[in-house]
Write a protein that binds this DNA or RNA. Sequence first.
DNA 1: TATTCATGTGGGAACGGTCCCACATCAACG
DNA 2: CGTTGATGTGGGACCGTTCCCACATGAATA
Lengths: 337, 337
Amino acid sequence: MDYTIKQIAQMAGVSKSTVSRVISGNGYTSPEVRGKVLQIIEELQYKPNAVARAMVSQRTNNIGVIIYRRDYPIVSHPFYGKILDAIIKTAASLNYSIIVTTDYDLSVRAADFMLEKRVDGLILISRFHQNVIDYIKHFNVPYLMVNGSTDVEGVIHVVNQDEAGGRQAASYLCGLGHRRIFTIAGPQTHRSHYLRLKGFSEQREAEGLHPDSQSITYADSSTFDEGYRMMQDNWPLFAAGQYTAVFATNDTLALGAMKFLIEHSVRVPDEVSVMGFDDVDHASMYFPSLTTVAVEKEEMGKKAMIVLDKLIRQEPVMQQAIEFEPKLVLRKSTSSK
Amino acid sequence: MDYTIKQIAQMAGVSKSTVSRVISGNGYTSPEVRGKVLQIIEELQYKPNAVARAMVSQRTNNIGVIIYRRDYPIVSHPFYGKILDAIIKTAASLNYSIIVTTDYDLSVRAADFMLEKRVDGLILISRFHQNVIDYIKHFNVPYLMVNGSTDVEGVIHVVNQDEAGGRQAASYLCGLGHRRIFTIAGPQTHRSHYLRLKGFSEQREAEGLHPDSQSITYADSSTFDEGYRMMQDNWPLFAAGQYTAVFATNDTLALGAMKFLIEHSVRVPDEVSVMGFDDVDHASMYFPSLTTVAVEKEEMGKKAMIVLDKLIRQEPVMQQAIEFEPKLVLRKSTSSK
DNA sequence: TATTCATGTGGGAACGGTCCCACATCAACG
DNA sequence: CGTTGATGTGGGACCGTTCCCACATGAATA
């Protein structure tokens, strides 16, 4: 149905080589021929076939993005969605398209799928098992990780400095005079949550606070409902413990916890300060707006795509770990004790 | 770098036709040969080249999704992101991949891009100009619209019954005894906002309420900040008007407005009820949780993909307008007067 | 015994581009 | 006047599949 370069050539009375040259701009073409060919292309609304082009050039200009998510939403995720947005936007400016898949079970299936599609590169978001990495490494496709498990060997990765962010949070809360801080920690199998908690706890001790194991509760997931539930379950303990602040290892958990508090007539921040991590969209929308450690989600996505492009173009990439510094965003959910 | 079917054939000592037959399962192959070939495929981790396959089969198994957005976020959008999620998920189960682009200027560029990529079908989300539709129609690619301008002729489209939803909202608020309702209407160039307002206003009159033009304020966009600002700008008027309820044509606007109210010590819902439309994720997370007219976002996305698949497979599609009924979700931001 | 048919395999064209190589023309130069 | 080089064009191999057609074999049937 679509026109081919051959048909264009025929109508212009030239060879397909010439048409190809006109389109690509490579090689010599006389102005008359070029004009004639372009006119016919315009008239017929000929669109070069990217599939055929990929066939010979061995480049699809497609990038595969694999996100590991237990729960299905990929794209509308408040954190990963932002990273993805930036990847898509940057990809467009570099003339790539993005194909997204979710990997449910840390298996190799999603990678297989992308490999068959012959993507030019692969971006792995969130954590992946070493065996998946090894599998991908075995094929010679450029790839990198975003916000992944950085303990995998020799993999270029883009990450937030989670540990430093945790420290910033502790330092800020302690600076406000809080001595009793209740912490809701997301799944420790997830490196981000682990490091945020680690940084927070260490800094908390560094500030001279007594390590109090009771003050940390571990969540099974990092959802809003889980944050709410964590607060609910620990409510008697919380009330008895005279805590004046809550720190959660991400905003969604923090917001859930905060909702529980507000619902139970605890005044935030007057009675209890609440602090999160990530700076997702609704952190600023909530009432009170949430103080948080903002992660450069857009910058991370953008950088990931730029570096991947370099890898694809075989340009040297200096650093293996591309780190982004989070920064404190002070809002209304925290106040001095 | 990747192995080809030819290499596999050579190693198995058979022709590439035979290997092709083993892989596809079409035609006769003896068990011995099949076993041998499969073993080599396994050993070498041969992955069929989807590009070459697309070349000959004239099917890429890729679907293009074009979303019209003035502001850039595509994917992390609380409403369209959900639709997209459902499309991606459903596409995967039908063996398609999704390529997403944003169209910034209602031009034909995004469509061109997809056409060059030879996508098997096209999903247009949000509104598009007639000329873009005409352009696409000119090529013989299956396509449909989701939540678009349904006034375009002869286009299969998936929509929410926005007008009915507007009526439901009015009926509900009036039923609670509210007589003075302040309405924040999103951009009327957007059919959804227009219809929601239309349904709401009509039903409001049908309930015997005096049409009061002062009670409607028109927003320039449909963001949280705009909702907040609308409330702020109309605050003197609002206070003077003794309004007891606010209806916004989407949740984001409603949430913004509600935040302003709460911030100014207006008790929601005791003094003022607030109601939105869409049922985005944070509607239920907010405090108080937002009463809204829930749109079947996931169902719409899923259905869109299923119907597009039918179009691609040349199966008959009966109805041109595929409508989804919204349903009231009663939460804590509304109460009887 | 000759014919038919199921089973199994290989050869090669086709898909729509890119790009190398061959070749033609013509001006400039030694 | 032959050589060189710039300019311009066409032929055809190639990318990695699919699938049609030809063909071979052996058992069953007329």
